[in-house]
Structure formats: structure tokens, C-alpha cells
Design a protein around this nucleic acid. Structure first.
Lengths: 347, 347
DNA sequence: AAATTTCTGATTTACGTACATCAAAAAATC
DNA sequence: GATTTTTTGATGTACGTAAATCAGAAATTT
């Protein structure tokens, strides 16, 4: 049987109340006594029964997820996963809520963080926009003692407690490497479609992609980045224009959202043996992968990310250590052949 | 606040004892009363506080993992993950133990399952060998009411409660598809190195690989399967021999273990632009991927599998539903560029 | 109608921890 | 040595559920 507080009290020859004072850092314990209790704790290998502790505390953990607004399917999938986790999380004494803010808007994000801090939530998970006012808001959350993790897109040099997301430089490198291998010796330049360079994840992916392309045995030109603001309409226009003006185009790497527009532009033109690699598995990209319009999808599992963010925030709130290995978010590579069965994010 | 048993009792106009009888399927409740209580439960949206329930029950869940013996690095990684999970799982009232049995030995596996059943454990996770005596043992576990999941390799037509592992046919298809794309128009046959066709996962991978190769635009011969019994020594001999006798060999797909031998044979020969795809990320395959000896590694994350097996077994033991989407084990594709930082299984 | 069986209620203890109160003991100060 | 302060003990309640006991009510059978 696991040792309990009673066992510690017996072993250390003190009362339950004293053990409690030591365990919960309450005042009124002499140094020698404290040492004796701590020795007993160590000797018995005592670990607090968190379930019982939470029960006794009656504590709940209100966590806030701050996500960008709009019809970005990945973000909506993320939101769905938060709601989904919320349904199952009554059990774990966690209360989840979602706040949406305009995309690419640092000031709005900063306000949302401040609002959460004011509400005195137990933790915040936010898709970061790389802006100074956001950094300041994160610093304020930190001062208030509220754990904050960045989600999907990180924030440089901020005091965030943890980043939940994939290594985006590696993701870009992977895209470049696959693009190079799939194209082989076929000539022609490749195009890159991004959302906005103000998103750190997009910048990092681009960096990795360019590095991998440069490292390939055959030199290949990369056209200037097209910024589609993660909007399907703009993406359609940019890609349609690019397809028309660059007849020998060999490949397209779409590192942001708005892929519905990309797929439509490719369909309109008829597929001319183009190597297409995109990010995030959505209904559109799934269908396009299946019918051969897209060659590979790099994906981050929204469900994993949400669950990881919850675990990390709870651990931070309780002052417990985080298991880095378990919380590392993997980059999934999907090709036609390893596409999982069902719909991915919703269910 | 969440509703409690007391709220149900009030709402239904019955006593706490009756609510308890309904909730825990104890006898001594009239049909009408039971219905009234169930209506109250539904109306209030009551969900049992598992933490409090487990605390009250004082229940622990002894789970057994049955793994093959030997120096198969993937299996040893799996074992390490079980021990690792065991350390962190004191918290969750789970007690994990590992039993090892000779590899490929159905009778030994069956005996181990029977032994676990005799010990009356709360759940069993076993790497299955496809043999009739194993099926019988699984049936006996089922009769005894002990949940059993197959791990990594499934068991056809057995009554196992769940399979924790990747879709191996899809894994084989993915390997074939990547092999085809990476080779492009380069001529030459490909070789397949397996462990044993008595392992269902190996058979399924081969099936998928052959299907994908057949579906490729350029026809390519696949040499007869080499069976290395997951042993590095045999693998070395088989591959060295193959390299010598098939000078125009284009690629190798290793779908089992023993890859240390494969890597050594390739190193001895010097790399002649061969496309090599293997399964399972280990210290050896990681190093070989990094230095270019191997082109891609298909991996199943041992940590995820262990944690999933534990969740599923506990859910089954408690008679709770399993969240299929969360428990789906993904096939990871690793190339040089998305190799995760640290050592993978141990840490 | 009496006897029996089947339900139901009321109450209690327990799980392991948190937290509060009050008294008693020990230590420090004067 | 008396007083104050600090430390410790003893005890109780609470969290939400499980499980047991025993008495009483209701239904069923005789």
C-alpha cells in the first residue's frame, strides 16, 4: 500500500497537523522538526494522492483558450477539440472556455489575455501573434502567477511557460526535403504560399523550407513568397495568377491556411504533374490528398495539442514538473497511403 | 457546481442508499423507483466523480504487459515505457508489471495470459502471436471478465477488447508508396526483409507494401521475402548475400526488427544509392537515418501505445466507453529532417 | 388477515487529504 | 522565574462516493 500522511506522522513521531504544515508549506514548524518530517517523507517515498487532495480542496481549474476568429479550418478544428475535451473533462475538475479574437491582431490578443488575468483563471493557452503588446500581456500574466502556454505559434523571448506545437523549422525542412525528393530531376521553380510573415510559425516554416531546398543536390529556384492572409479567396487569386505566369512551375508549398483556394485554383487549371505539399489536414486537404491534387500534408494533431496544453497548464498550476518527452508534439506526415480513416478533428 | 448523489436523491425523492443501489447496479430496487432515479440522473446530467469513487473504493488496477523477450530494441523500448509509466502512475491507482515470454512462442504467451488470469489482474496487454492456443487463452481471459488488449501485433478473430497499434496494412502501403516515389524512374528490384510471417503485423505490412508497389506507375520487381527472425545476425547475412547477388538492387524495405544487422551490412558494402525504408526508430535506425544510410523510418510511438493501452484497460475495467479517436495510434514517418531531438524511447 | 418477501430509508464508516480551531507544550525573551 | 512567543498536538469537518447495517414500509404470497 502507498504510504499516507498518517504513516509519515507515525514515522516522524509528530502529529498529523505538523505533517500537514510541512507538506503545504504552512508556518509554525521548527527547522529540526521540519527536517525530521521531510526525512520520513523521503524514506517512505510518499507521494501526495492528487485525487484525494483535489477532492478535499474542491478546487476547479478554469482554463482559457484564446484562438483567432475566422473560417480557418485548422483553428475551428482546434476549437472543436477544446469543446470536446471540455465535455470529457468534468471528471478532471477542469473547466474549459474558448475566447476568439481577430486574427493577426496583437492588440486584441493582448486585451484577451489581460481579461483572462483579471478573471483570475488557472491557466491560459493562446495562439500567439508575434507583437510587443502581446509580450507585455504575457509578462503581466506571469506576474499575476497565471501559467500561460503558447499554442501552435510561439512568441519569441516572452516569458511563456511552455510552447505547445510542432517544431516549425523542422516542418519546413521536411516539406523542402520531400519536395526535393518527389520532384527528383524534374526542372522548374517552386512557389510558396504563406498566410502572414507576422506569424512566427509561418516564418519558421519558410526558413526551414528554404534551407532544405538549398541543401538539395539539384539547384531549384524558389519564387518570392505569396502572402494570402490565410484567406481562401486571396489564395485562389495568387495561385491562379502564379500558375498562369509561371508555366514551368514544378511545385507549390503552402505553409499556412486558405488551402481551399489553392485546391480550387489547381482544380480549375487541371493538374499538370505539380508537386503540392500543404499544412494541416482538413476536409479540403484530405479530399485533395485522396484524389491526387495534393502529394503530402504535414499536420499537427489538434486533439493532441489541446490535451497537451491542458496537462501542462494543470501541472504548472499545481507546481508540478512537466514531462517534456510526453508533451512533444509530433509533426505528422500524411500521404495518400497513411491517411487515417475517419474525419480527423471533428468527432 | 456539479450535481452529486445527494442532488439525485433529493430530485428523485429517494434516499442516498437507493441512489447508490441504482448507480452501482445493486439489487433491491423496484423498477419504477429505478426509473425515477435514472430520470433524475439524466435530468441533472450527473456524472460520477471518478476520483472520489476510486478513493472510496480504495481500488487499485494491477495491469500486466506481456512482451517478447530478447534484444529487439523496439520491444525493450516498449518495456522501458511501461516502467516509466509505472513510476508516474502511482497517482492514478494503477500498478503495472511486465512479463516477458520467448518471442514467436504461442504456447508460452498463452501460459503467461493464463497466469495473469489466475492472479486476477485488472487488465492484460499482450504483443500477440497469431496462434490458436493464444486465441484460446484470450477467450479464457474474456470469460473471466478480464479485459485484454493486443499490443503492436493483433490477433485475428479473437475476442480481444481492443487493438493498440498502427494500421499495419497502411504502414506497408506507405512504405511502398514512399519507396516508389523516392526511386522515381531508377530501375532495379527491391528486397523485403521481415522477421517472421507468423507475426500478423509483419504479414500485414508486406501485404500493403506489395499492393502499393503494384499500383506504382513504373513496374518494379519485388524479390522473395527474406525472413530474418528479427535477429541482427541473420539479417546481416541475408542482406549481405542479397547485396552481393543482386547488383542492380534499388531498394530495401525492412518491415521487422534486427535492423542493426541491416545497417551493418549496408555499411560494409558502402552505400550505392539504395533507397532504404525501415520500421521503428531506435538508436541504430536513428543514427542511420541521420547519416543517410536509411531514407525513411516508419515508427509507432511506444510511449503513446503504452499510455493508450493503460487508458483503454482502465476504461474497460470500469465499464466505461473508449474514445476511439483519441486511442488511434498514428504511423509516424521520419526522414532526416523531422527527426525529433532527444533519444526517443528511453528517458 | 397473517406471514413472508421484497424494497426503501436513515445512518454510519471509510478513503486520503486540506484546513481550521483550541489547547498544551516548548522555547525564547525579559 | 515569570511572561511572551513560537511550535506542536489533538480533534473535527469537509470533499464525493462506496459499502454496510438495520429498521421500517410496501408489496407479495399464503
Amino acid at each position: 500500500m502507498r504510504p499516507t500522511v498518517h504513516d509519515i506522522a507515525d514515522k516522524a513521531g509528530v502529529s498529523l497537523a505538523t505533517v500537514d504544515r510541512v507538506l503545504n508549506d504552512r508556518p509554525g514548524v521548527r527547522g529540526v522538526t521540519r527536517a525530521r518530517v521531510e526525512a520520513a517523507i523521503a524514506a517512505l517515498g510518499y507521494v501526495r494522492d492528487v485525487a484525494a487532495a483535489n477532492l478535499a480542496k474542491g478546487r476547479v481549474y478554469p482554463l482559457v483558450f484564446i484562438l483567432p476568429e475566422g473560417d480557418n479550418p485548422f483553428m475551428r478544428g482546434l476549437e472543436a477539440q477544446v469543446r470536446r475535451a471540455g465535455r470529457h473533462s468534468a471528471v478532471e475538475r477542469t473547466r474549459l472556455s474558448v475566447t476568439t479574437v481577430p486574427a493577426f491582431d496583437g492588440a486584441a490578443l493582448a486585451r484577451a489575455i489581460d481579461a483572462a488575468v483579471t478573471e483570475n483563471v488557472a491557466g491560459i493557452a493562446a495562439v500567439a501573434v508575434d507583437a510587443p503588446e502581446v509580450c507585455d500581456a504575457v509578462a503581466r500574466a506571469r506576474e499575476a502567477g497565471i501559467p500561460l502556454v503558447t499554442l501552435v505559434s510561439d512568441l519569441a523571448g516572452s516569458g511563456r511557460d511552455h510552447f505547445v506545437g510542432v517544431d516549425n523549422v523542422a516542418a519546413g525542412r521536411t516539406a523542402g526535403s520531400l519536395m526535393g525528393r518527389f520532384l527528383g530531376t524534374r526542372p522548374g521553380p517552386v512557389a510558396v504560399l504563406a498566410g502572414s510573415m507576422r506569424l512566427r510559425d509561418h516564418g519558421e516554416r519558410l526558413e526551414g523550407f528554404l534551407a532544405a531546398m538549398a541543401a538539395m543536390p539539384e539547384a531549384r529556384a524558389v519564387l518570392p513568397v505569396l502572402e494570402g492572409q490565410d484567406d481562401p479567396g486571396r489564395a485562389f487569386a495568387l495561385i491562379a495568377d502564379c500558375l498562369a505566369s509561371v508555366p514551368d512551375l514544378a511545385g507549390i508549398y503552402s505553409l499556412g491556411a486558405g488551402n481551399r483556394g489553392l485546391v480550387e485554383a489547381l482544380a480549375a487549371r487541371g493538374r499538370g504533374d505539380l508537386c503540392v505539399i500543404v499544412h494541416e489536414l482538413t476536409a479540403e486537404t484530405r479530399a485533395a490528398l485522396r484524389d491526387g491534387t495534393i502529394d503530402a500534408v504535414l499536420n499537427q494533431d489538434a486533439g493532441h495539442e489541446v490535451r497537451s496544453a491542458i496537462r501542462v497548464l494543470r501541472a504548472k498550476a499545481d507546481g508540478l514538473p512537466v514531462d517534456a518527452a510526453q508533451e512533444r508534439i509530433r509533426l505528422d506526415i500524411f500521404i495518400k497511403d497513411n491517411l487515417p480513416a475517419g474525419p480527423d478533428e471533428d468527432n
